[in-house]
């Protein structure tokens, strides 16, 4: 545990350095890509626990994200301005921001438990449809709430809090905050996956009846997976809202839920490394295809390439880039020709 704390502190320092480099040397548009990648990683790694480890096919991740986004953004506006009024965009204070993040994570987790409990009996396609329905219901309910702006949503959400020495950074501190949570979710998920709980989740995925007769309470495990995934989706939503400074219910359509699932399937369902790599690819691909599209004068090309890529993937490597493997020293050693065998006596 002490070691984990040290690792996390080291990673936070790394995030600070990363943000510094971004602010000083990298073009704003690329910084934006990197930040979007970070948000996608948090979503994908969280969903990997539900869809990959526990094997519960959820298509409602955008729903959890929206709950966190609106809860966090609303709290942040209240804490920063007191009431909504016009004026320049300000920074939310550090304390308020952490409070908002906790609130968004917990509210999304609570919704996760609420969704997890009644849908436990559903399997496969049925569960996917139920979670998809939940996400749509959430979006429609949010759209109908005048207190949070109805269809236009919340605006003038304050910027993420300043850090010591960050006053002159033009792009703000978003990169630090986003990547701090990327590090946190990866660290916790690695621990979870390697723990006895991670194994119990995989048992539920592999054979629910056998898991139950071995004493694993499958329903409790499934709810746990939903709560965990939803918590980080909520955090990602809150970060997203503060990053964009505005948030609308229509930011969280089914397309976004599917996008996160595509990240997992592309990287390899059940692999944490795969989730990270899939998140980066799915986020960056359209951004880099768009200039190509414009220069060739073929609008819509990026969607075609995107779809073709997924089709090819399903045809030739249905288990995803990583399958269920993780990036580890052992795998690296195997990739170096002859390295794996010679290292063993």
């Amino acid at each position: 545990m002490a070691r984990n704390l040290l690792v996390m502190l080291g990673l936070l320092a790394g995030c600070y350095g990363f943000n510094f480099v971004m602010a000083e040397f990298i073009e704003v548009v690329y910084v934006d890509y990197i930040n979007l990648c970070g948000l996608a990683i948090i979503l994908a790694v969280g969903l990997n626990v539900i869809n990959g480890l526990a094997g519960q096919f959820s298509l409602g991740h955008a729903g959890f994200m929206s709950v966190g986004a609106f809860a966090g953004a609303y709290a942040s506006i209240m804490l920063t301005y007191g009431v909504i009024e016009s004026g320049p965009l300000s920074f939310v204070s550090m304390g308020s921001f952490l409070l908002c993040l906790a609130l968004s994570g917990l509210s999304a987790a609570a919704v996760g438990a609420l969704v997890g409990a009644p849908t436990l009996r559903l399997k496969g396609d049925y569960l996917a449809i139920a979670t998809l329905g939940f996400a749509e219901i959430t979006r429609i309910v949010l759209t109908a709430q005048d207190a949070i702006g109805g269809p236009t949503g919340l605006k003038r959400i304050p910027k993420m809090p300043l850090l010591p020495g960050s006053e002159k950074w033009d792009g703000g501190t978003s990169t630090f905050w986003i990547y701090a949570f990327v590090c946190l979710v990866i660290l916790l998920s690695v621990n979870l996956q390697r723990s006895t709980f991670g194994r119990a989740l995989i048992c539920v995925r592999e054979n629910e009846l056998a898991a139950e007769t071995m004493g694993v309470r499958a329903s409790r495990m499934k709810i746990m997976a939903f709560v965990y995934g939803a918590f980080f989706a909520g955090i990602a939503g809150c970060l997203y809202a503060h990053y964009q400074h505005s948030v609308r219910p229509d930011d969280f359509t089914t397309v976004r839920s599917i996008e996160v699932v595509v990240m997992l399937v592309l990287g390899g369902l059940g692999s944490l490394t795969g989730a990270v790599v899939g998140a980066v690819i799915v986020t960056l691909l359209p951004q880099f295809l768009r200039p190509l599209e414009e220069s060739l004068g073929l609008s819509g090309l990026s969607m075609v390439v995107y779809a073709a890529l997924l089709l090819l993937m399903m045809l030739f490597r249905p288990q995803g880039i990583f399958g269920q493997r993780e990036l580890s020293l052992k795998l690296l050693r195997r990739l170096v020709p002859g390295g794996g065998k010679e290292s063993r006596p």
Binding site: M1, R3, N4, L188, N191, L192, S195, F197, G198, M224
Partner: peptide
Amino acid sequence: LFDALLRT
């Protein structure tokens, strides 16, 4: 779960 997440 917290023992597992924090590797206590």
